[in-house]
């Protein structure tokens, strides 16, 4: 009886001495099973005052932007060189002007903008006029200090475009309404609502790949080829300043 009592006391003392270790290992098992979440959170809370500040983040972002800009310039140069070899219209960054809109008629019989710069500032007839987001129209005539722009929505306006996703070409026709009409050359252009429309790389009038708009609806039953309605990216009734982009001759 005394022996059994002694054994019980020994077992209790042994377990008491082992308890911290059991707790420690149990804790570690929990940490292991949660992939160290507690550790990570605790570390984050404790080290938050020492995290890199916003200035460092901006520095990284500006570095990233610079790298992208350099890469874009290199690609543009490469693209222009290849386009020259193919005798296609080249785009250039060098003829870009910011120009104020001094008169605007975005609805009605004439859909045109009057810009506050002209041939004295280097603007030429045929230059592309860009609003925030995309192409607005084409400079139709210039005076020494002003330029007239025919909007893409104006009746009679015609621009060669393509669907960026499917590479199908068509002509964007102004029909007077806010949304010009895109007439495809192919009978099955495989275009869907939301596809992006941009200036065709084969265009000889405008710099290639300028964004124009987004497909709003498609009529696949139209003859002789499907037609689509395009929502322009740049709303002409809301712009006070535009960018005029000349391109290399």
């Amino acid at each position: 009886m005394a022996g059994g009592q002694q054994f019980a006391i020994f077992r209790w003392r042994f377990l008491r001495r082992l308890r911290p270790w059991i707790l420690l290992i149990g804790g570690l098992v929990i940490i292991r099973s949660t992939k160290g979440a507690l550790f990570s959170d605790a570390y984050a809370v404790l080290t938050r005052p020492f995290w890199p500040g916003a200035s460092q983040r901006e520095w990284l972002q500006s570095g990233d932007q610079l790298a992208k800009q350099i890469r874009l310039n290199l690609l543009e140069e490469d693209n222009n060189r290849l386009r020259k070899m193919l005798e296609l219209q080249a785009s250039s960054k060098y003829g870009v002007f910011s120009v104020p809109v001094i008169s605007r008629q975005s609805k009605g019989w004439w859909q045109q903008l009057e810009l506050g710069k002209g041939s004295f500032q280097g603007i030429k007839a045929g230059s592309a006029v860009l609003g925030p987001g995309g192409l607005l129209g084409i400079v139709q005539s210039v005076t020494p200090t002003t330029s007239k722009v025919r909007l893409l929505t104006a009746p009679g306006s015609q621009v060669g475009v393509w669907i960026t996703r499917t590479k199908h070409h068509g002509i964007l026709l102004g029909i007077g309404t806010n949304r010009p009409q895109l007439t495809f050359f192919d009978k099955a252009p495989q275009v869907v609502k939301g596809d992006v429309v941009s200036i065709s790389p084969a265009s000889t009038l405008l710099p290639p790949n300028l964004p124009v708009g987004v497909i709003q609806s498609v009529n696949n039953n139209a003859l002789p080829a499907p037609i689509a309605t395009v929502q322009l990216l740049a709303p002409p009734e809301a712009v006070d300043w535009v960018q005029v982009q000349n391109f290399d001759d």
Binding site: G108, P155, G156, G176
Partner: peptide, 24 residues
């Protein structure tokens, strides 16, 4: 204007009875 647009621009964009001309 409507008639001129129809006769001069019809092949490319403007139909005779289009809502835009009527609205304008």
């Amino acid at each position: 204007f409507w008639l001129q647009l129809f006769f001069f621009k019809r092949p490319v964009s403007v139909d005779l009875f289009n809502s835009w001309s009527l609205h304008t």
